[in-house]
Amino acid sequence: MNVKQYTIKVFEIMVDDEAGFLAFVEKNEVLLRRHLLLLKGDVSPEIETFLQKKEIAFTKNIPTTSSKKESQGFTKKSGLEILDKMVRSGQEIATQKDLLALKRINSGATIKTEGNLIALSTVEGAIECNGDFMLLKPSKKSYIKFNGADISQEMEADIFYKIYLKQDEIIISPYKGVISWA
């Protein structure tokens, strides 16, 4: 027998309004497709067939003990780390704090933060941010993952984007202002 243990991330969703839930899934299909949904509340057969058709994995009514409000940031530490050096290919920066990256993040470099991330120069490397907020300027080469979702394809190159969580939904919006404070 071969036993393996995995730690997986799930989206816990309380279903109280079927139409609202279906609209939410429709809208966030790209984000949800690669994840497991943990559904709570009233899961109707319509919802189940809908998710099966969309090929989104789900499970329902498993008791979880984690308190919902505090689920964010259990590994995050408070504080800001300022990175004033260019991140070169092959270098990996990992932090549990918020990160302010002033210089370029080159192709082949990796940044991982549990906190928020602001990157002021061009990003060509890989970013994994599990914070609530991100501000960065992607390029064609960059790979950007926010709270487990690959959002690289959702953005155009060479424009600053604000990416944030709003009630567990990822909002990606171009930042039109001029960033002048660094």
Partner: peptide, 11 residues
């Protein structure tokens, strides 16, 4: 990119 990598290693 390879040059970038070796510069990082030099540092």
């Amino acid at each position: 990119r390879d040059a970038d990598r070796v510069i990082g290693l030099v540092d």
